[in-house]
Design a protein around this nucleic acid. Structure first.
Lengths: 341, 341
DNA sequence: CTGCGATTTTACAACGTTGAATCGATATCT
DNA sequence: AGATATCGATTCAACGTTGTAAAATCGCAG
């Protein structure tokens, strides 16, 4: 059986509260008693019972991270970054997968399990702007992503519009004129797809290039297979283009695959850029140009804001933070324009 | 402030223990009082305090999963599977990243945080067979992977030798004669690399083909970039081969990339098979043949064994389970042999 | 060696829950 | 009718920790 404060106290010949004082570095403990107690702790291999400590103190030292699915590489890398950032502050991370299911996203906030942690970092995918009022729980929440703005929670997000604009400008700067889009969402205005499409349109507009819906391919989800399907769709339409903006990296990879199968050279015939800077984009053929949305900064900001909110729940009004981004040019956009699809 | 049993009891006009009985579906509660209590629970939005429950009951309803890094796709998919399997049993999962660092792997087992969960599923990468005796903690452990066998813990592993043998035989069955290996570990006997290389050798031996160390490329880590480096190494050696066995999928992908850059066609000139059946292998060009090591089964078996061990820690001697595997033939091994590198 | 302030240690009461034991009140049996 | 189950609800004591407040010990001046 695990040793308790009482066991240590008995061995050391002091009261259990003195042992507690030693462990918590209470100032008024005589050196000789501290030594006695530490000897007893070592002897018994005592470890504090964190559950009891949590009950008494009201906080657990854990946070919950709720996201759609770890098998989606973007979320795996996000989770990696959040766990690292949390570890730096001595926190552990409890992961809940929602499967992008509306019901499960709501359950995460309502579940009593949430109280096994001190706060929630929540990346919803099914809930949207119309659900802003439902974002609440009995621990502080930091929202991630582009689904919901102006809720009553703190929010960390990437700069989708400017970043997508920069990605598009990167292609335009290479001399590409007809930039197809892979992965738009029908009728979406906010949300990653809507915002990135807006950035794309802004870039075109700034150069006086008319927007052409004929080279924009719509998908339902951002899964790998859909990038391929969207590119098939574009090729079937018989439209011409000399570049592709994949609204995320997996879509872009699917699109590259279909282009190559169809005999187009990337980037010679068609330049391709993605979005997210997944690790794997460094190892595809060709390597994929993309936008680094500042994942580490997102994770660290989220942790920092959550801790501030835990310490002082009603301190400041909800904050909205946008992280820095960076266009990463790789092989898929190297070299000059040649022909087109 | 969150409502407690006492608050509910006051509102319902019963003792707090009766409220507890209602919540725990204790049989002897009159329907009318149950209704009263349920009304009060709803009215106050009462949620049980799981920390207090844990302290009292001695278990938490959480398990810890310790793995190297979520940014490695294999581990992301493993974590996904473990979380799903745990969710089916009503458990939450707390993730610790060790970064494949020996010190952190040992810390995970020694940390008092581990007691915030009821058990540990541990996939070590730095600890090895010589550390078998160090695998212990004050919660039950289920070990995953190929680093350590015959410890005093339960262990779930894939059938590395037979699966690698089957992958090699798949290539041989296509008529390939000279099968290069990418990703061997110098001097390793057990461990994923050592075991898979053994399976490869067994397959050759069974067909009377001599083993040739000249077409085996060694690497230090199984990171993406190393598959590429290993293939460069093979090409530099000037040896000829008509197939490649990548000891995992990311290595195989790196190898494919280099082969394509060098002008070889996959699979026409060189057939390639990987190992792990990562989601992404379905969307590369060409799609990558691989071995499905039974990840879902690994996760579910690990959870089941852990729960059994939690219920009855000393019940049975440590168990060793191997999951079923399956060769998945995709484009990278389709068609017949042509020429070679 | 007594008294007093400062330092060190201890006793006690929580935190919110569940299990064991208890106590009344009905219902059941002889 | 009286003894005995059975059901329903309650009381009490834990689980292991920390904060508060009181008690014990110490050092030192008078």
């Amino acid at each position: 059986m695990a040793a308790t404060l009482h066991d240590v106290a008995r061995v050391a010949g002091v009261s259990f509260k003195t042992v507690s004082n030693v462990i918590n570095h209470h100032p008024h403990v005589r050196d000789t008693t501290r030594a006695k107690v530490e000897k007893a702790i070592a002897e018994l291999g005592y470890r504090p019972n964190l559950t009891a400590r949590s009950l008494r103190s009201g906080h657990t030292g854990a946070i919950t991270l709720a996201l759609p699915q770890l098998r989606l590489p973007y979320f795996a890398e996000l989770a990696d970054a959040v766990i690292e950032a949390a570890a730096k502050r001595g926190l552990v991370v409890l992961i809940e997968q929602t499967g992008a299911d509306r019901k499960r996203e709501l359950e995460v906030m309502a579940s009593p399990r949430l109280k096994m942690s001190d706060g929630l970092i929540f990346s919803p995918l099914a809930l949207g702007q119309e659900d802003a009022d439902l974002i609440k729980a009995d621990v502080p929440i930091v929202l991630l992503g582009e689904r919901i703005f102006d809720s009553s929670s703190d929010h960390v997000t990437m700069q989708n519009v400017p970043a997508a604009r920069a990605a598009t400008e990167h292609l335009l700067d290479l001399g590409r004129k007809r930039i197809a889009v892979v992965g738009a969402h029908e009728g979406e205005v906010i949300g990653s797809a809507g915002l990135r499409l807006r950035g794309y349109r802004e870039a075109l507009e700034a150069r006086g290039i008319p927007y052409d819906d004929g080279i924009v391919a719509y998908v339902v989800d951002w899964h790998r297979s859909n990038g391929a399907a969207a590119m098939h769709d574009l090729l079937d339409r018989g439209v011409s283009f000399d570049a592709v903006f994949g609204l995320n990296d997996t879509l872009a990879q699917g699109a590259v695959r279909v282009l190559q199968e169809a005999g187009y050279r990337v980037p010679d015939d068609v330049a391709v850029i993605g979005f997210d800077d997944l690790d794997e984009t460094r190892y595809t053929l060709p390597t994929l140009s993309t936008v680094d949305p500042g994942r580490t900064e997102i994770a660290e900001t989220a942790i920092r804001m959550l801790l501030e909110r835990i310490k002082d729940p009603a301190g400041t009004p909800p904050r909205e933070v946008e992280t820095a981004f960076r266009v990463v040019a790789r092989e898929s956009t190297m070299g000059s324009a040649a022909g087109a699809a």
